[in-house]
């Protein structure tokens, strides 16, 4: 086949995506998203996560099976939609990921900084990034656990508790942080998530103070990101937004990250949890 014919073939294949009418572009993106739903690799992460939960690891050679995610030791079903919440043993409001750090430290004997960063175990591939998330050649036990635990709340109603004073304080702080503008671009969360029906390039943006948008957003994280070939958690979502806001790095499982998640979870209250999802 001549190069010209190959090129024509490639063009014909890509043309429908770039047809001049904006409407067609959006329709094609919607079709692409629907195709993705049928083949979500998040399943692979969920399967690994379920194994990590029962596997003996760490200096204490112990599993996470007695980890209390808020509904009692070892209760995973429905735990995700009841987080973040106040935990008496740490006297802190915690989201799933910071709570897993607590359990890895308390039950498995990991040092806190070890539990917070990658890799806890892995494929033996060299660690390329120091980010607390999985990346090129690097698996994350944390990410796998999050995928599985989240999947155990699929179909349930998002209902984070809001009765403890520290939960209320975290919500208020999260709300303030949502409106906090700083850095060389003057950005805050509000810049992109304060109005309805807006986009960055072709990416739709949820208005986080709008219940329906917040429910859809919170209800579809964690998610497998096709463009990155990775499953991404809610902590990652915060970390990545903050990076794009040109802020310094948001520390994994930090109080600010948790406060933001508390704010979002409460804005999304009453929505149906449908994650791990799959996104572009």
């Amino acid at each position: 086949m001549g190069i010209q014919r190959v090129l024509a073939g490639v063009l014909a294949a890509t043309l429908p995506c770039f047809s001049p009418a904006q409407q067609d572009t959006l329709k094609e993106i919607e079709r692409y998203r629907q195709l993705l739903q049928e083949s979500n690799p998040a399943e692979l992460y969920e399967a690994r996560g379920a194994e990590h939960w029962t596997r003996k690891r760490g200096p204490k050679s112990s599993s996470l099976e007695r980890c209390d995610l808020g509904l009692g030791p070892g209760v995973v079903k429905g735990a995700y939609v009841r987080l973040p919440r106040y935990f008496a043993d740490t006297d802190r409001v915690q989201d799933l990921e910071s709570r897993l750090v607590t359990c890895m430290v308390a039950l498995q004997g990991f040092a806190p900084e070890e539990a917070r960063r990658n890799p806890f175990s892995g494929t033996g591939a060299p660690m390329i990034t120091t980010d607390p998330f999985s990346g090129v050649g690097q698996r994350s036990v944390m990410t796998d656990l999050v995928a599985w635990i989240a999947s155990e709340s699929r179909g349930m109603t998002i209902a984070p508790p809001m009765s403890h004073p520290k939960e209320r304080l975290a919500y208020q702080a999260g709300e303030r942080l949502f409106y906090f503008r700083a850095g060389p671009y003057d950005f805050g969360c509000i810049t992109c998530h304060g109005e309805e029906g807006k986009r960055i390039r072709l990416q739709n943006l949820p208005k986080m103070t709008n219940a329906k948008d917040a429910q859809r957003a919170f209800g579809t994280w964690p998610a497998y990101r096709v463009s990155e070939g990775e499953l991404r958690s809610m902590q990652w979502r915060m970390w990545e937004c903050i990076r794009q806001m040109r802020f310094p790095e948001l520390e994994f499982a930090s109080d600010a990250s948790i406060a933001l998640i508390v704010f979002l979870a409460n804005r999304a209250e009453g929505g149906t949890f449908d994650a791990p999802a799959i996104k572009r």
């Binding site: 083949s39 690799p41 399943e43 692979l44 390329i128 990034t129 090129v136 050649g137």
Partner: peptide, 22 residues
Amino acid sequence: VKVLMAHEMETGLRKDASGNAI
């Protein structure tokens, strides 16, 4: 039949953070 396979599918064309080819 629907199959999901867990594989890196690394192309050999990407570079890591320190500029070395993966």
